[in-house]
C-alpha cells in the first residue's frame, strides 16, 4: 500500500498535522479521490496547486499514472519556473 508523506504546511493544514499515512490506491486519480474523502479539501488542493512525487519522480496533473505497490508518495507544492 502506498505511503503518503507531507512535508509542507500547504498540505498539512488539511491533515491537521498528520505527516505520514497509508492510502489504498493504485492510480493517481484514485489516490486524489481517497485523499479528498479522508481529508476534505486536500484532493482539490492537489488538483489545483500541488505536485505528487512518486518514488522521487515529480508528477503534475497525471491521473492515469499507475502507482507501484508500496510507493513512496510525497505531496509538494506545484513547481513552475521562469
Amino acid at each position: 500500500m502506498p505511503t503518503v508523506t507531507i512535508a509542507g504546511s500547504a498540505g498539512l493544514r488539511f491533515t491537521r498535522g498528520l505527516a505520514e499515512f497509508e492510502v489504498e490506491a493504485t492510480t493517481m486519480r484514485r489516490l486524489i479521490t481517497e485523499l479528498e474523502a479522508r481529508f476534505p479539501g486536500l484532493g482539490r488542493e492537489i488538483d489545483e496547486g500541488m505536485a505528487v512525487a512518486v518514488n522521487g519522480e515529480i508528477h503534475q496533473d497525471d491521473y492515469a499514472l499507475l502507482l507501484p505497490e508500496n510507493a513512496e508518495i510525497c505531496l509538494i507544492p506545484k513547481i513552475a519556473g521562469g
Partner: peptide, 9 residues
C-alpha cells in the same frame, strides 16, 4: 531525501 519530502532520483 530532501527536507520537502522528495527522494532524489
Amino acid at each position: 531525501k530532501t527536507h520537502y519530502g522528495v527522494t532524489f532520483p
